Simulated scan of single mutants.
Amino acid sequence: MTPDDVLQAFRDADALLEGHFILSSGRRSPVFLQKALVFSQPKVSEMLCAALAERVRAEYGEVTVVTGPAVGGIIPGYEMARQLGARAMFAERNEDDVLVYKRGFEFNEDDRILLMEDIVTTGKSFRETVAALEEYPGTLVGGGCIIDRSGGKADVGTTLLSLASIEFPDYDPNDLPPELAELEPVKPGSRRKF
């Protein structure tokens, strides 16, 4: 599967949006990937994760647990675990806004853990999940995502495999290009901070 195939899956789901968007990080972009529309379609999720699972097997070998941050890592993490024959878990934010493992999820000393996300922009949630995993046994073999919108520049705290690595532009809200500044900003994402 090529990066163009991945973007076409987003276009087909009406999930590749253009305008002026406030990203979860607070940065601004003329492109937004409404991943919920893609991952609401089981067949599309299966297709994307099956393609990435091939790369994961080749690069990381056996994986026994797939985990990621809620909410973005839950559906692709579950589907990736299904593809790899692994267990699926997720970290979620506690009352202090820190990613932790709840719900009785446990890791074993011999677990080989893949950290999975839908889309990586700044790598913040990825790094926070890596930090949460430091409290548990097992080995983090690396990470995976469907789209790395940083073009490989985001620090995720581990290695990262993606189906598509594309550097979509994003800007500080106080330093917008004129054509973006003319448009009313929209916040279609899920984080509450911005």
Rank of each mutant, 00 (worst) to 15 (best):
E109Q: 11
E46F: 03
V130K: 13
A81V: 01
P169M: 10
L23G: 08
L84H: 09
D172V: 01
V130R: 06
G138R: 01
E128A: 12
I75H: 01
G142P: 11
R57K: 15
R93C: 06
S165T: 08
P30S: 05
D5I: 12
F10T: 09
N94K: 05
A81F: 01
V120R: 04
F194R: 10
Y101F: 15
V98M: 11
P3I: 09
R82M: 06
P188C: 14
K124E: 14
A86C: 12
Q83D: 04
N174H: 11
L183P: 05
G85N: 02
L133F: 09
K43N: 11
K35C: 06
A86N: 11
A9R: 12
M116Q: 09
S190P: 10
R55Y: 03
L84A: 10
M116V: 10
P169T: 05
F32N: 02
P42W: 08
A53L: 05
S45D: 02
E182N: 12
I147M: 13
T67C: 06
L33Y: 11
G72W: 07
P188M: 15
V100A: 08
R149P: 00
F21N: 02
R57T: 14
F21K: 01
A15V: 11
M80S: 03
A154W: 00
V38F: 06
S40L: 08
A58E: 15
T64Y: 02
G26P: 12
G143I: 04
F32T: 01
L84R: 03
P173D: 09
E179S: 13
E117P: 08
T64K: 01
G142I: 10
L180T: 13
S45Y: 03
F168I: 08
V156A: 13
P76Q: 13
L133C: 04
A131Y: 10
G85R: 02
D97N: 13
V31C: 07
L37K: 15
M116R: 03
R27D: 14
L133K: 04
F10G: 06
P42G: 06
F90H: 12
R55A: 09
L99Y: 03
T121F: 01
V186S: 07
L7Q: 10
G73N: 00
L161T: 07
G142F: 08
L163E: 05
V71T: 14
F105L: 00
F107V: 01
L163G: 09
T139S: 10
D111V: 00
I75R: 04
